[in-house]
Simulated scan of single mutants.
Amino acid sequence: MSREHLLHGLAQVLPDLYAAECASKVRSFLTQLFADANAGKPLMHEYYTNYFDLYWDLHLGATGEAIPAEVRQIGAGFTAVLGYWYPTLDIVRENIMRVRELRPSLLLRTVWTGGIEFIALDVDQPEELPVAPRTVIDDNIGFRRAKSVES
């Protein structure tokens, strides 16, 4: 599949949004991926090395140092788990445990920087959701943005 074919396919999904917000970022990613310096090198390594920059740039406009190290480590952990898949392999267990270790700091950072407050919702019959082994909770917790304090 050529670079132009890939870009054309993406543009067909949401043409207005893609043209306005995504095209230049995806084009830069693909230009970097297919740079002459990468010719003859393993392509997927280069892809995954730079994928999270593209992902966070598209979603939050964050690139480079603005992406917390924990986010990159969590992404690498998920990639390893999905790639190796078999739960009995040490590498899968190690990456699952690393993601679990990093998850609280990522959540706390998001809550802090986003001004998020958690609230109990008045839901008549909340859906029950499994959230961990042997743990099911009612889906009745929501959030709101904290009112900004003006000085």
Rank of each mutant, 00 (worst) to 15 (best):
A69C: 06
A19D: 14
H45A: 08
P42Q: 06
T63H: 07
D57H: 06
F52D: 11
E46I: 12
R27M: 05
L43N: 04
Q32W: 01
S28K: 03
G61M: 09
L58F: 01
R27H: 06
R72V: 05
F29P: 01
N38I: 01
C22F: 01
Y51R: 09
S28F: 01
Y55Q: 05
Y47R: 00
E70V: 15
G61S: 09
E70S: 13
L17V: 10
M44C: 13
E46L: 07
I67P: 09
G61N: 11
L30T: 00
A62G: 06
G75C: 10
A37Q: 14
L43H: 05
I67E: 09
N38Y: 00
L33P: 02
L60N: 12
I74P: 09
G61D: 09
G77M: 07
A66F: 04
Y51T: 03
E46H: 08
V26K: 01
F34T: 04
S28P: 02
G77I: 08
G64M: 05
L58R: 00
I67K: 04
I74D: 09
L60V: 09
V71G: 08
N38S: 02
E21M: 14
L58S: 02
I67A: 09
M44K: 15
D16K: 05
H59M: 14
F29V: 00
E46N: 10
Y51G: 02
G64D: 12
T63K: 13
